[in-house]
């Protein structure tokens, strides 16, 4: 049975314990940030920031909302980055947990390609060319622990468990949350292992809250376009 995380954003207080717990478990260095006029920091994910609480101020139906979205890799069931890489020594899936894992060998991949393949805009390369992102705390899971972010969450906004249990919990939560927020939805629950519950239009929380085809960080290149086209084929060949 693979694992899953439910992130119920209606319970998140943006305390950002998850963001720090992630850095602590992975021993990731801090980024030199500046305050750009927002509580959100850093401004984006990076090879040293796998988890980031995105914060958005917006007015919905004449009421001010401050929306919090703890962004991270979704660990797709059918991961496009994995298909794109076609190199098990760089990107592979742990079939026991469902974690999509990146190794140092990602330095041989085209980071632009891998990023653009991700419908959630997650993977980032460092200066050393190694591509990095959330690893589902796979080492913790194999040792009977929950992911660091889930453990640190004070409100229960993040839940971890067997996929089936989390899916049923997600359905229950959605029913409850809809009583207060009729427009609430689960984001791509059938496609990912990290399932978000949001109260409003997901695009308000983050451009990539739901799966989006995108142009990448420097526009789409010809080779990327080509890879995108043949990706599914390549993957089939790989499985075969």
């Amino acid at each position: 049975m693979t694992k899953a995380i439910l992130i119920d954003t209606t319970l998140c207080t943006a305390c950002r314990a998850c963001q720090v717990a992630c850095k602590q478990w992975h021993d990731l260095p801090a980024e030199q940030t500046t305050n750009v006029g927002s509580f959100q920091n850093p401004q984006d994910l990076s090879d040293r920031t796998y988890k980031l609480v995105r914060m958005t101020e917006t007015v919905i139906e004449n009421r001010l909302k401050w929306l919090f979205f703890p962004d991270q890799c979704r660990h797709c069931l059918d991961a496009p980055c994995l298909s794109m890489a076609v190199d098990e020594s760089a990107i592979y899936r742990d079939d026991l947990t469902g974690a999509i894992l990146y190794t140092r060998n990602t330095r041989h991949l085209d980071p632009e390609e891998i990023n653009v393949s991700c419908p959630y805009d997650i993977p980032r390369a460092g200066n050393d060319g190694i591509i990095a992102k959330c690893d589902f705390c796979n080492d913790r899971i194999h040792n009977g622990l929950k992911p660091a972010c889930v453990t640190a969450c004070p409100t229960g906004a993040m839940q971890f468990g067997d996929r089936e249990d989390i899916l049923s919990m997600a359905d229950d939560r959605l029913k409850r949350v809809r009583k207060k927020f009729p427009g609430a939805s689960l984001l791509n629950p059938d496609e990912v292992s990290v399932i978000y519950l949001v109260a409003f239009d997901p695009s308000v929380y983050s451009d990539y809250a739901v799966a989006q085809a995108h142009q990448g960080r420097g526009g789409i290149s010809r080779s990327v376009a080509l890879r995108k086209m043949i990706g599914p084929l390549a993957r089939m060949m790989h499985i075969g």
Partner: peptide, 12 residues
């Protein structure tokens, strides 16, 4: 603590 300074780096 650098991880915390990353989150709130300065007086605002």
């Amino acid at each position: 603590q650098e991880w915390l300074m990353e989150l709130q780096p300065s007086m605002f």
